[in-house]
Amino acid sequence: MLNSLHPATRLVGWIALIVFVQLARGPLLWGFGLVVVTLGLSFARQRSLRLVRRARFLLIVLVVLFAFFTPGEALVSALGQAGPTREGLMLAASHGVRLLSVLILVALLLETTDERTLVSGLMTLASPLGKFGFPVERLALRVLLVMAYVERPPEGGWRALLDGRADTPSGPGLRVRRQALAVPDRFLIGALLVLIVWGAFR
């Protein structure tokens, strides 16, 4: 079913899920996080674990900052204000679930949609900007290059990119075919955009 959706529709749906996880609170957040983690481990296990591993220091810093620097009731009375607080741990857990959910949603998107299809969807969404002179094709090319380097980093890693020793992908492999939006996709994108705006400003 997912493959039948236009790439632009998939991107807008992904954005809607990101907005939802930022707005969710309490049991809704925990339940959504559990579902996302389960899906990630079931359908994109390797990619999910790789993204979480890369963001592990960010997760650790997030937990420490919220747990130890949020005013509230001390969790360990012997440590007093130097220790973590109950309120801080709750905030750390909530924000940790949000970050973890976003990482796994990224992994699921990349697992189910290849980079050329994603860039095709991005070009469709950005096409109205082309009427104002915005270089949509150039943006698509740069995004595709970044994704190619992220998925298949050159030998030597980021240092090779800075030194100019990495080969730049070129040729027919960088061509992206723009797909026309079908009527159902237009309605679905419109409905998702309304939900995103409503959720962001309610």
Rank of each mutant, 00 (worst) to 15 (best):
Leu58Met: 10
Arg202Glu: 11
Leu89Tyr: 03
Ala126Lys: 04
Leu195Ala: 13
Val106Asp: 02
Ser101Glu: 05
Leu41Arg: 08
Val64Ala: 14
Arg165Tyr: 08
Phe201Met: 13
Val64Pro: 01
Gly199Val: 07
Gly31Trp: 09
Glu73Pro: 01
Gly96Thr: 08
Thr70Ile: 08
Gly26Glu: 12
Ser120Ala: 14
Leu161Pro: 10
Leu139Val: 12
Thr112Leu: 11
Gln46Ser: 15
Pro27Trp: 08
Gly156Ile: 05
Thr85His: 06
Asp167Arg: 15
Arg175Met: 05
Pro169Glu: 12
Ala140Lys: 04
Ala200Tyr: 06
Leu49Pro: 02
Ile60Cys: 06
Arg186Thr: 04
Leu5Trp: 06
Leu181Lys: 09
His95Tyr: 13
Ala166Met: 03
Met1Gly: 14
Leu23Ile: 04
Arg165Gln: 14
Gly83Leu: 07
Ile196Cys: 03
Leu193Asn: 09
Val19Phe: 13
His95Phe: 11
Leu139Pro: 01
Leu141Pro: 01
Ser4Pro: 00
Pro128Asp: 10
Ala140Val: 06
Leu188Ile: 09
Pro153Lys: 08
Asp185Met: 08
Lys131Met: 06
Ala200Phe: 07
Ile15Glu: 15
Gly31His: 11
Ala44Trp: 02
Phe201Leu: 15
Arg56Gln: 13
Val76Trp: 14
Gly171Cys: 12
Phe68Gln: 02
Ser120Val: 11
Leu99Pro: 10
Leu103Gln: 05
Phe32Gln: 07
Arg10Pro: 07
Asp114Phe: 01
Ile60Pro: 00
Leu100Ser: 09
Leu103Phe: 00
Ser48Leu: 05
Ala148Phe: 02
Ala107Arg: 02
Ser127Pro: 09
Leu103Val: 08
Phe187Ala: 13
Thr168Ile: 15
Leu145Val: 13
Leu2Tyr: 08
Ala82Phe: 15
Arg142Ile: 09
Ile196Gln: 10
Gly171Ser: 07
Leu174Pro: 00
Ala126Thr: 12
Phe132Ala: 15
Ser120Ile: 06
Ala166His: 12
Val76Phe: 15
Arg116Asp: 04
Phe57Trp: 13
Val183Ser: 10
Gly133His: 05
Asp114Glu: 14
Leu41Ser: 03
Gly199Gln: 03
Gly130Ser: 09
Ala16Lys: 14
Met90Glu: 13
Asp167Leu: 12
Arg116Ser: 10
Arg50Glu: 14
Ala74Leu: 02
Phe66Tyr: 15
Ala92Trp: 08
Gly72Ile: 05
Gly40Ala: 08
Arg50Ile: 05
Arg54Pro: 01
Pro71Phe: 06
Pro135Leu: 07
Val52Tyr: 06
Val194Gln: 10
Phe68Asn: 04
Leu174Gly: 07
Leu188Val: 09
Arg116Asn: 12
Arg98Lys: 12
Val194Leu: 14
Glu73Cys: 00
His6Thr: 05
Leu139Lys: 00
Glu137Ala: 15
Ser94Arg: 08
Ala148Arg: 15
Val194Glu: 12
Ala55Met: 09
